[in-house]
Design a protein around this nucleic acid. Structure first.
Length: 321
DNA sequence: CTCCTGTGAC
DNA sequence: GTCACAGGAG
């Protein structure tokens, strides 16, 4: 296997089962036997060879990558992490696969198969959907590699995951069944741990900072409310235009406020909500009455009050600016 | 982190 | 018709 053919096959295998890839791979290698041949082809010819495989941007990435190889690397695939990274469509897994299988270097290539095998073998309970966990698996997968022929183990882990340590593991057939910690504990089906992400609700809010002399208007969240006991600025909910906010201010608070400036946006989240805050500052010349639950508080005393985290960020950025 | 891409299982 | 998958990109 030339480095180029490893690259092509790994990219094809990113999205498709091997059984489907094989005929495509064979045709591809006949039509574009090396990076130069691929680089010289038109995009249409390239896509034509890919037709039916789906994820066409990956064919375009191969094409673009081949051109880069011809321009910058004498038509050969480079053999370092740093150079390979420059090719689009080569992420952490494919990088490791190329270093390992094409250049026989000691490099981890962690795909979904490897993840199942390692998480079960070592009974690793961390959530694999997290980036930090992925990094830990990368390190672990590297650390267990021998110095001699490391690519054999890299391939073995992938192969074991593909054939035996599947989603539903076939432990009775597994050569590692005695060494496997999760199997010994009878909980192999609990791995890998993946916290299913509940789809979060995005909210846009416009906190309104009303300055009156050296006071700011705040309100205390009532009992039974979310954020109960915490203070917050009055805010307008939803995407909107500045003019609508002015009207909202008049209708809601019964006072005339002059727009002063916007503050940098802040993000914060609670439970399933992800809130982006677009705070803006107004000045008040005078006021007659305040809506219920609202009070003016001296600006220097505000930091002593408990605020919800998003509004605290807004407060701090207001003080800093 | 979140989003994107097509597919195939439900 | 909805969701999980699997890897990459932003």
């Amino acid at each position: 296997m030339s480095p180029y053919s490893v690259w092509v096959s790994e990219v094809m295998l990113q999205q498709t089962q091997a059984i489907t890839v094989i005929p495509y791979f064979n045709r591809w290698m006949k039509r574009f036997p090396n990076p130069k041949a691929l680089a010289d082809a038109s995009e249409q010819e390239v896509i034509k060879e890919w037709e039916g495989l789906g994820y066409y941007s990956r064919a375009r990435n191969l094409h673009q990558g081949a051109k880069l190889l011809v321009e910058a690397y004498r038509g050969e695939l480079p053999n370092t992490r740093e150079e390979l990274c420059k090719i689009k469509g080569i992420g952490e897994y494919t990088l490791g696969a190329i270093l390992s299988f094409a250049f026989k270097k000691k490099a981890a290539a962690v795909d979904g198969n490897t993840l199942r095998v390692l998480s079960r073998f070592f009974a690793i309970e961390e959530d694999i959907s997290k980036g930090t966990t992925q990094k830990k698996f990368q390190k672990l997968a590297f650390d267990i590699l021998p110095d001699k022929e490391p690519e054999v183990l890299v391939e073995a882990l992938i192969e074991l995951g593909a054939t035996i340590c599947q989603k539903k593991p076939r432990c009775l057939l597994c050569p590692l069944q005695t060494g496997c910690q999760s199997r010994r504990e009878g909980r192999e089906e609990s791995f890998p741990v993946k916290v299913k992400k509940l789809k979060s609700v995005r909210l846009v809010r416009h906190p309104l900072l009303f300055i009156w002399q050296d006071y700011l208007l705040i309100r205390r969240c009532k009992e039974g409310e979310i954020m109960s006991g915490l203070y917050e600025f009055p805010y307008f909910e939803g995407e909107t235009l500045p003019s609508k906010i002015e009207k909202y201010v008049q209708d809601t608070y019964f006072f005339k406020a002059a727009f002063k400036k916007v503050l940098p946006k802040e993000k914060h989240s609670f439970t399933v909500h992800q809130v982006t805050l677009f705070p803006q500052v107004f000045t008040l010349k005078s006021y007659e009455k305040l809506p219920k639950d609202y009070v003016f508080e001296k600006i220097e005393k505000l930091t002593l009050l408990p605020f919800s985290s998003g509004h605290r960020k807004v407060l701090l950025s207001f003080i800093k600016n």
